[in-house]
């Protein structure tokens, strides 16, 4: 079970306090968006082997959404940060 620190509440906490909310940093294409660009926004995801930026919600805590970097190989959370903050540089 993952340990996830909440950027609002602090401390690594057990995964069961959280709910996964999909890939982070998805950008809605600028209007007018082509059908291809919009379809990519809707359906295309990175799914990397390595560091994935994802959104989580501390649903059984503060209720806030935040971003996390998770290494999909070691399955560890490497960093967490608030929405709007720049994705931090980390090594896996």
């Amino acid at each position: 079970m993952l340990l996830i620190p909440c950027p609002y509440c602090g401390f690594p906490r057990p995964e069961i306090e959280f709910r996964h909310a999909g890939e982070a940093h998805l950008m809605r294409p600028e209007e007018p968006a082509s059908d291809e660009a919009y379809a990519a926004f809707l359906y295309e995801r990175e799914n990397p082997k390595g560091i994935a930026a994802e959104r989580w919600r501390h649903v059984h805590g503060c209720g806030r959404y935040f971003n996390a970097l998770r290494d999909t190989v070691s399955d560890r959370i490497l960093a967490v940060y608030k929405p709007g903050e720049v994705r931090p540089e980390v090594a896996s």
Binding site: R19, R55, R57, V59, G63, R64, Y65, P83, G84
Partner: peptide, 13 residues
Amino acid sequence: LHLLEDYRQTEFI
């Protein structure tokens, strides 16, 4: 509620 919170917190800030 989850969806509305998502938009409230992260999209329509």
